[in-house]
Nucleic acid binder design. Structure first.
Lengths: 101, 101
DNA sequence: AGCGTATTTCGATAATTCTGGAAATATAGT
DNA sequence: ACTATATTTCCAGAATTATCGAAATACGCT
């Protein structure tokens, strides 16, 4: 992952509402939850939730799939994982003294 | 790590300048770099850099230590690690079907 | 076509953040 | 005390973001 993309994704996760959404979805698993479920569980006004969801979709952290009447939001767990790994990648490559971690 | 704290830290990492700083420091290792080194390497105006450093310090992602004339910035690698791990903690606890990750 | 439920788009306001120049502060050396 | 280097604080303008009500859209059912 390149720096700019990682920063974008971090920024989206750097909002307590959006982080709540992602945490809920990650916990729930890859099959996802409906928008309405998220709304009820987290008690977010529909328009606010929709705004945050579209931002998360924008950076690839979740995807949506329609099943008739309802939309399912699925966390893109490999993307989250990659982002997490990015933070410490190449750690200490300029300093062999890793003792005091 | 609790949600609010994690979101704060993510938000600080969600800026390309600050993420550059952290990446540089993480790569360089726990012994840190001087403020001036960071400034030269990343080519950031001093006041801008100082602003971003203070934000990173604020959330515990880096610490500073004075050595006579210069200030060293040391990445708090365990904190970064904890944050990274937070993202996927309790993953899929509500859904045993983890196959399609 | 009309209705009901689910979700998004629009629009507007308040709040926060980013950036960098100029001035201030800190520390060491003379 | 004075000078030099390193870094922060102050300030202010531009830009971005968060929030949510009201209206619009999407889809299935009858």
């Amino acid at each position: 992952m390149q720096l700019g993309r990682a920063a974008q994704r971090m920024a989206e996760l750097g909002n307590i509402t959006r982080l709540s959404i992602i945490r809920l979805l990650v916990k729930s698993g890859p099959s996802g939850l409906r928008v309405g479920e998220i709304q009820e569980i987290l008690e977010i006004p529909a328009s606010t939730l929709s705004h945050h969801l579209s931002r998360l979709i924008n950076v690839g952290l979740i995807e949506q799939q329609r099943k008739s009447n309802v939309l399912y939001c699925m966390p893109q767990i490999p993307v989250v994982k990659e982002l997490a790994e990015y933070l410490l990648s190449e750690c200490c490559s300029g300093d062999t003294n890793i003792k005091n971690l």
